[in-house]
Write a protein that binds this DNA or RNA. Sequence first.
RNA 1: GUGGAUGUAGCUCAGUCCGGUUAGAGCACCUGGCUGUGGCCCAGGGGGUCGGGGGUUCAAAUCCCCUCAUCCACCCCA
Length: 434
Amino acid sequence: MSIQRLRGTADILPDEAPLWRRIESAARREARLYGCREIRTPVFERTELFSRSVGETTDIVSREMYTFPDRGGRSVTLRPEGTAPVVRAYLENALHRTAREARLYYLGPIFRYEKPQAGRQRQHHQFGVEAFGDGGPAIDAEVIELLMRFYEELGMRDLSLLVNTVGCAACRPAFNGRLAAFLASRRPDICEDCRRRSDGNPLRVFDCKSAGCAAVIAEAPRAIESVCPACRVHFDGLRALLDEAGIAHTVRPELVRGIDYYTRTAFEVLAGGLGAQNAVGGGGRYDDLVESLGGPPTPAVGFGTGIERIVMVMAAQGIAAPPPDGAVVSVIAWEPEGIAAGRRALRSLRGAGIPAEMDHRGGSLRSQLRRAHRAAAAYALLVGAAECARGAARLKDMRTGEEREVPLEGIGAAMGRLAPAENRTGVPGGRRPS
RNA sequence: GUGGAUGUAGCUCAGUCCGGUUAGAGCACCUGGCUGUGGCCCAGGGGGUCGGGGGUUCAAAUCCCCUCAUCCACCCCA
């Protein structure tokens, strides 16, 4: 084997692409239903966009970014998350001036230099939504509802939604201080990782899985009990709205996200079948980010969800993938007299919007029919010398085996009338007739 | 970055512990049986740097060392 794909990357092969398209079109449909418009930002940005927004001390910025100097000496970074570029584009193109409230969605690759494992790659893909300009809990609930509906549309089951509040600029510093002080007092009882965390981002200790730390953490002050009255009202409001929408959720006070810009609402959706990386999606509110990137004070809330992890959950839950792409009609000519007529039929079919193929290498009728069968074509068009001489061919239904003679003239239009449902790329009745 | 497991045909894997004739199976692929008819069956065929490099040995897929990759877990996240 010569050149291989880069570590942590994956090829999405023709057999898998239909499922990806289904997921992507569900994403676009849901986003549209909720009033979101698509935005496409570059896959690379100036490095400082991410260091300033995501946070210098986060794992993402401190050790996971694909950062390199370009030929002009600028430091550029492959986007390690979707929100900061959208905020940048929102400001740079003055979208906040044309509409007070903007709802945007994106779909595309994300890059993080991590060690791959189940559900974790160096390039993965996310569907994300960002809603700007509304600081109230109703929009948080709506964004979460969009996400849960999207999963539901794909047939995903047994998901758990975890919600938390991480406070705001007014109350978080004080809480962080109290937590840090508490952790300092218990420093001998906590693990090395947590000591490190208590210096950088003390909230992270709530994530620790070590048994020793769990006992300490149980006594630690909780953000949810320490936030300011405004944050409390927002969080209670969100929970009531989720209840109203019939969206089951669990309050998880230890839920913390690894990106610094979140304020107030933080949420995550967990699923089984993913291995240790059990989050399919997550997000939250980021009321200070737009302003910190140079815009006017603008509250915002959004989520990102990983397409690869959705694919994994769907596979684990046995959710059927769409049929593979393939030709609907296989044109077969096995005698010299039929070859040119076969090619004309091929053009006629394609002109009528019917996916059609013909094996130009030829071969016996038997072998070409076998190929058509394996390619799961719905029909075979047999252009034999005898029929060809009277301007006709035999149309064979591959599922039933029935054959009838059809005129070659206008074959595309005739097939279009015969099987209008097959005018698209899908093949009716599933694939692989047996 | 740390730890564990695994690398043999396009795919899934046997063979490795106990070194020994041309390295196997199933599936997939190609051809024929059926000279103008797919699926099932039968027969035949193509395909391999045994991840790479080095070492030990008369002899290495097999033993030793190094290296790379993949998977899984920690960490972190989608």
